[in-house]
């Protein structure tokens, strides 16, 4: 049975024009390739440290 209150909470407001700017600017989140690159860099850096 549908719970109106629960359902209404699931509805998200739609983006308006004023919100577009923030959305665009905040979009630069790291994706998996960035994460892997970051991991590889950290792995390389820790490897160098161990060698020393």
């Amino acid at each position: 049975m549908l719970n109106f209150d629960e359902e209404i909470k699931k509805f998200q407001r739609s983006l308006e024009v004023e919100d577009a700017e923030d959305t665009i600017y905040n979009n630069d989140v790291p994706d998996i390739s960035d994460l892997i690159s970051q991991l590889m860099q950290e792995a390389a850096a820790s490897g160098n440290r161990n060698r020393r």
Binding site: S14, L15, E16, V17, A20, T23, I24, N27
Partner: peptide, 16 residues
């Protein structure tokens, strides 16, 4: 789907 602003945002990011 009617979310014109979301759509425009994606295109702006793509163009950037």
């Amino acid at each position: 789907r009617g979310d014109i602003v979301e759509g425009l945002s994606q295109w702006v990011i793509s163009r950037s």
